[in-house]
Design a protein around this nucleic acid. Structure first.
Lengths: 218, 218
DNA sequence: CATAAGAAACATGCTTGACTGTTTGCAAAA
DNA sequence: TTTTGCAAACAGTCAAGCATGTTTCTTATG
């Protein structure tokens, strides 16, 4: 990228190769699945030798784990950027639902579905992921907290709605596997859910402040 | 089972071996994951030789596909039984949510999480599952339709709530992998959801019939 | 009813292929 | 020239599918 010249420092070479390998890993996870994401296949997809791969990553589990962590941390950065923008703009709850759906449906949760079963059966792998996932949820929290603060809804209740939204979207994307080619179905469900969420976060109209209802009630 | 004597008909022998193999397959899918569900492992778990397995099932994909279909059809039978009982009793929407959660969390969706990625990347495998899954959803429909009929809610709206419930539960179970040992979290979310569902299906009090509200409104 | 022929169920061993982890060789950068 | 980044060859493991034996049941026939 930086510097089209042929002479690169070792660090640059190394970093680029690593990046190519990690991107290739995520691409393969998404396109062909974890079982088919073999080390020869990753190297081929990245356009490097398998030796390069083993030089940078000691084991297959390592490159997958690191690649997933990398993907998650990038997504977390995006979340925080969205949160900043959302706060500045004063966006709607509908926007959040749409953003989350797009983010999850654009590869994130499909990739997650690939490694989740492995995480369930492999404690080491799981342990490496949990902290990264925690950061990711902190990013989500940043967004919803902004909405909660503006609408005066209790944080606990906000968090429940946030988590329910995440779970709903996860489940919807799971379903796309065995119920494909039905965008109307998924959009209909999203519309329903946006309406439900709106009820939890009453609109703070630009003029009237008294529009806050008893959201957060048990 | 029937007749402790040693002499069994061919059909009985065959059926028992098949059953043992299919049960072993589901057990392994749940306990060790799809990748670790190898044909030698299945045979070992079932207590039969690998030759017996290859005699009954031509390929690894076949035994897995058939076992999953078997599991799903059993669950579908249970759904219909619950629906009958539910209709007779006139149960609550809370009950439905609880039943679905239990059913999914008791292995069903964990097993599903194992084969879903494979279904996503393997068109033949997916094609074999889709009809069985359709039957399963018909079983779900039987339950919710009963509730809808009693409360006078529009079928389309009912179906949205049903599907949202299923998606939510799927997502919740996905999350248990990387957020384990937190039953309060999941129970809290279920409580929230039951409340939401209740709002969609206003209680038909034993006395008043006019308690039906405008649920199903856009 | 006894029994032998045949079919179905099951067992064992082999072959092939592929993947993982490792080691050795080499060229470019420091 | 010493280290670093990478390439290529190698060795060990294991599963899948197949092919060939062996046992258990069924049935037709005398």
């Amino acid at each position: 990228m930086s510097g089209t010249g042929k002479r690169r420092s070792q660090k640059e070479r190394s970093a680029e190769t690593s990046t190519r390998l990690m991107n290739a890993t995520i691409d393969l996870l998404h396109d062909r699945g974890l079982a088919r994401t073999t080390t020869p296949e990753i190297a081929r997809q990245a356009g490097v030798s398998r030796g390069a791969l083993t030089h940078h990553f000691t084991t297959r589990e390592a490159i997958i784990s690191v690649s997933v962590a990398d993907m998650l941390s990038k997504t977390t950065r995006d979340l925080h950027r969205f949160a900043e923008d959302f706060i500045a703009r004063g966006g709607s709850s509908d926007e959040i639902v749409d953003y989350i759906w797009q983010m999850m449906e654009d590869r994130l949760f499909y990739v997650t579905m690939e490694y989740l079963p492995e995480a369930r059966h492999n404690p080491d792998f799981r342990a490496e992921l949990i902290p990264t996932v925690r950061d990711f949820h902190a990013g989500l929290d940043a967004i919803w907290t902004a909405l909660a603060a503006r609408t005066g809804v209790a944080p606990d209740h906000t968090r429940i709605v946030m988590n329910a939204t995440m779970c709903l979207v996860r489940g919807m994307i799971s379903q796309t596997v065995l119920r494909p080619n039905d965008p109307a179905y998924y959009q209909g469900m999203l519309t329903f859910w946006k309406q439900q969420v709106r009820q939890q976060f009453p609109i703070q109209a630009a003029s009237s402040q008294d529009s806050r209802r008893k959201a957060g009630a048990r």
